[in-house]
């Protein structure tokens, strides 16, 4: 459905915006390396089923997400390393890993390797933006491209919510994927404050600056 497709393309767009920002400005300043590593972990643990993906649509997106994230990490850790300031990127990711690990172990749909890792990746994704938002809070402002990146990335999961509602009513089974929906709502809530400033400042041509 349209929400799902818009969401996936928003996700892809966010990655292109980030790569464009790094290469255009020859800098990864303002980008949290920790969040990027968490996204890599999210993709690896969620797409363990990559070789068995039957849909070409999903297969292409999975390959794009994994490969582009690897490239972003390479740029941040090697090519543009001097522009990456670890002193600003101080969020304690062990809390996020613990949160996702605990929920994945306590409430997976099934106790299989794939299911536990899948649940871990869903919960981890829901909080993976926190180091990035924390860094933003410390610097107090962001370049326009960085703000566009975070906005597009947040929109992706927000668009999955109407997708789930649409699917609930349009598919005969009326199933609710409780893990994905709960984590998706949590993820969108974490962005709400950012979205508000993005809407009131950046979309009106102003700089992204925290009050």
């Amino acid at each position: 459905n349209i929400f799902r497709v818009l969401g996936d393309f928003s996700h892809l767009a966010s990655i292109f915006i980030l790569l464009h920002k790094i290469q255009q400005l020859k800098s990864c300043s303002g980008i949290s390396f920790k969040s990027q590593v968490l996204y890599m972990l999210v993709y690896i643990t969620r797409y363990l089923d990559l070789p068995w993906t039957s849909s070409p649509y999903n297969f292409i997106f999975k390959v794009l997400f994994i490969s582009s994230e690897l490239y972003i990490i390479y740029l941040m850790a090697r090519a543009y390393k001097p522009t990456n300031d670890p002193n600003l990127d101080t969020f304690h990711v062990e809390f996020l890993l613990g949160f996702a690990g605990l929920l994945a172990l306590l409430f997976p749909y099934k106790y299989t390797i794939l299911e536990v890792f899948w649940a871990f990746s869903i919960w981890l994704e829901s909080v993976a933006i926190l180091p990035q938002l924390f860094m933003l809070q410390r610097t107090g402002e962001a370049e326009a491209m960085t703000a566009h990146y975070i906005a597009a990335l947040g929109m992706y999961r927000a668009l999955y919510i109407p997708n789930w509602i649409y699917r609930y009513f349009s598919e005969p089974t009326h199933k609710v994927d409780t893990i994905a929906v709960t984590a998706g709502i949590l993820q969108t809530i974490l962005y709400s404050d950012f979205f508000w400033i993005y809407y009131t400042k950046v979309m009106r041509g102003e700089k992204f600056k925290l009050p």
Binding site: H11, D49, K110
Partner: peptide, 10 residues
């Protein structure tokens, strides 16, 4: 089955 449903999203 639920597993198939999970895996059909990204």
């Amino acid at each position: 089955d639920k597993r198939l449903e999970i895996k059909d999203e990204l």
